[in-house]
Design a protein around this nucleic acid. Structure first.
Length: 277
DNA sequence: CTCCAGGGATGAT
DNA sequence: ATCATCCATGGA
């Protein structure tokens, strides 16, 4: 099956560090969208796919986001413009909430390559196997599946000290104490507060989950890469800029689609050599 | 080998 | 409120 996907770059969207389990296969990628094993391949302005409906594909890749308008809302400074040009077609996808939350709990102080490794280990060991084009795909284990495990079982997937946080958060979600789906109705600040009450979730992880799983396109996660971008591009030769000052600047400067701006700056910094360590 | 990574929790100033 | 330290692990 195929659908029209204008203004879209599949490779950048899957390899920009917002999602961690898609694997290259021939001219396309194989992975899971929720419980479905999926193959997806870009052919110019079309998306060729198997394993899910067109509706599921279009929704997951946010093909309805008005990307041109979003990019026009970015501030007009040199760094932002370079990132915008570098990331043309990159879309913020709609990830399943638990999968996104759990993955970013395991992401702290980890490189993207290792987050991928942890995600794949958890899937292979504790997820459910699916078949797509001869590939074995594994779904991300649900909170209900995680609570049946021990901290030691999780540590065998190289989670280290993050295992405890994932296990306790899974218990809160599985018990219904943390209502991930109902939180969809909350305004940004209330949603962030709820997320930050979960063990292993601070401001940065909460903002990632808000951006990648709750479609809060204003959420602006600040990690070590983005902090370097901010200090080098927006506060050059200025010492003693506090974390709070950076936060205030981002909320004010990048506007209603700050999350998109952030992801473009992040990907450009990592893959385009826009910043120095 | 060393350095550091899409940080968070905790305890001391 | 800000700051220092510790937490596991492995890619670069």
């Amino acid at each position: 099956m195929k659908i029209l996907a204008p203004d879209f770059d599949l490779e950048k969207t899957l390899n920009c560090g917002q999602v961690f389990h898609w694997e290259k296969s021939g001219a396309g990628f194989v992975g899971a969208i929720g419980a479905k094993g999926v193959y997806v391949e870009q052919q110019r302005d079309q998306l060729v796919f198997m394993g899910a409906t067109a509706k599921v594909i279009a929704n997951y890749f946010s093909l309805d986001h008005p990307l041109a308008g979003i990019c026009c809302s970015f501030p007009r400074d040199p760094g932002m413009t370079a990132a915008r040009d570098f990331c043309r077609g990159l879309r913020i996808i709609r990830q399943p909430r638990w999968e996104c939350l759990a993955t970013f709990i395991t992401s702290s102080m980890k490189q993207v390559a290792h987050i991928r490794q942890i995600s794949l280990a958890l899937r292979k060991r504790y997820g459910e196997s699916k078949q797509i084009l001869g590939h074995k795909i594994f779904t991300y284990p649900s909170a209900e599946q995680i609570v049946e495990l021990t901290e030691q079982g999780l540590r065998e997937c190289a989670l280290g000290y993050r295992a405890k946080n994932l296990l306790v958060t899974a218990r809160l979600v599985a018990s219904g104490e943390a209502k991930l789906e109902a939180w969809r109705e909350l305004p940004d600040d209330a949603l962030r507060e709820h997320l930050c009450e979960l063990p292993g979730v601070g401001a940065k992880v909460a903002n990632c989950v808000m951006l990648f799983a709750y479609e809060r396109l204003r959420a602006f996660p600040i990690d070590v890469w983005i902090e370097r971008v901010l200090r080098q591009q927006y506060f050059p030769r200025k010492r003693k800029v506090t974390a709070q000052q950076l936060r205030n600047f981002c909320d004010r400067y990048f506007g209603e689609h700050g999350g998109y701006a952030q992801q473009y700056l992040f990907h450009h910094a990592r893959k385009g050599g826009a910043v120095s360590k």
